[in-house]
Nucleic acid binder design. Structure first.
Lengths: 237, 237
DNA sequence: AGCAAAATTTGATCCAGATCACAGAAATGT
DNA sequence: ACATTTCTGTGATCTGGATCAAATTTTGCT
């Protein structure tokens, strides 16, 4: 195999994308180069439906750049967001390991660059690199734990606090005056993530603001002034 | 290794237990015999706490016989059941693949026979039998799908219908007059599984009964008279 | 079988969050 | 910068399910 060529040839891009993906983190460079040959890169504009609920996924898809949401729609059309995916996350495992249909839509929230690894190639990769299977198990088990945790939290205020903290961790920048968080979703999106009405979220956030805990700056940024105040009221670990 | 001895020596029991466990389903007999040596069997009476939330699991535990519940407790003491485990299910993967603390209690609903496979042994087994990792991925991905599906179902009636159907599949016996389902949980348990109040469940079941769709026979059995009536109102696959 | 304890059902009331309606603010395009 | 459109906040009202309080049924035990 040719060595790295120093500019943006396909192989270099592949390596770039793969190195930031936890699933492949255990691999050495030559292995990465080999696997890179199987990966199909594809770009999608914001708003694309990458996967429709009910379809049968024939590839595992790994996010190189951008954000996506996985969501389900109730009969009355109400959206329930199940996951937010970012760089390094993957989806489509349903179709590959069970013969299951995708249980949610996946939609690009921004322009995205995705890496597809098709069924037969993926199976070959797994044969050669059993460590990858362990990474996938770890990732799925973390994802399970995060869903399981949602169950305990019956209390809405606690769930909102927890989500704000999660956003703060993932998207926040610490500055004088608090943590500035660029929200990945609109108010409506956040409400759909929490499974509540937009108006209810509005009221709850207003309450937090009048308590001096947060401050909203336009529609897309929130300043968290008292992160500690959000730590209480959470369900047990 | 000695060959099968025809009566209930430890090795035979091990094989018995292992053969009905999907995770090991891909293995041939000699492999099973080898792995059986690692497995620690242990019996627990009904009501035992097998695992406490917050503990660090150091083994994967596979259910040989019996039923268990995995549950979390809110601050006010309210129980939320997250999973019902039966024969062939496993738990404890959190501790082994991530350094995560167990997010729920696991309690025996009946007398149970469990198979423990400790961390280092399990890792050795996975090294030798990469197929097992794939089985585990498949199982976790099914478990994820079932949690993900719960999210969409905001409608309580639909969730109850779905649970009744699930119980019917797992525990029901078809007879003249309908499907007779031996419930694995009390009304209170079912309510905690659904995350609602016992009284609410009571009322909903009474409604179903006066609609002629189900009939309760004592507290532990339900006769499903019109299974088809439960099929509607469910969220999309 | 009969009795005490436990679980369930039923009724009455309450309340958090949903829904409806609309006003105000922010984002977007020209 | 302005106008249009889209998003967000707030008040008023409604409602499904929670909670409280008995009454009734089921179960388990001797």
């Amino acid at each position: 195999m040719a060595e790295s060529c120093g500019h943006d040839c396909q192989l270099c891009l592949d390596k770039l994308c793969m190195q930031k993906i936890p699933v492949f983190s255990s691999l050495a460079r030559p292995d990465l180069e080999q696997i890179a040959l199987y990966i199909v890169h594809r770009d999608y504009p914001k708003g694309s439906i990458i996967m429709a609920a009910g379809a049968r996924a024939d590839s595992i898809t790994i996010i190189n750049t951008g954000k996506l949401k996985a969501c389900r729609y109730a009969e009355d059309g109400k959206e329930q967001i199940v996951y937010l995916f970012t760089e390094g996350d993957f989806f489509g495992e349903h179709g590959l390991f069970n013969d299951q249909v995708t249980p949610y839509h996946v939609e690009a929230l921004t322009d995205v660059k995705l890496c597809h690894l098709y069924r037969s190639d993926f199976q070959a990769v797994l044969q050669d690199h059993p460590d990858i299977a362990l990474q996938i198990i770890a990732a799925l088990s973390r994802r399970l734990a995060s869903l399981e945790k949602v169950f305990g939290n019956q209390d809405l205020d606690a769930r909102i606090n927890q989500l704000l903290l999660e956003f703060s961790d993932k998207y926040g920048r610490s500055q004088a005056g608090g943590i500035f968080v660029r929200l990945p979703l609109s108010r409506e999106g956040i409400a759909n993530y929490l499974g509540i009405a937009r108006e209810t979220l509005s009221r709850k956030l207003s309450q937090l603001e009048s308590d001096g805990i947060i401050k909203s700056i336009g529609n897309k940024t929130i300043q968290i002034r008292k992160p500690d105040a959000l730590l209480h009221n959470s369900a047990p670990e």
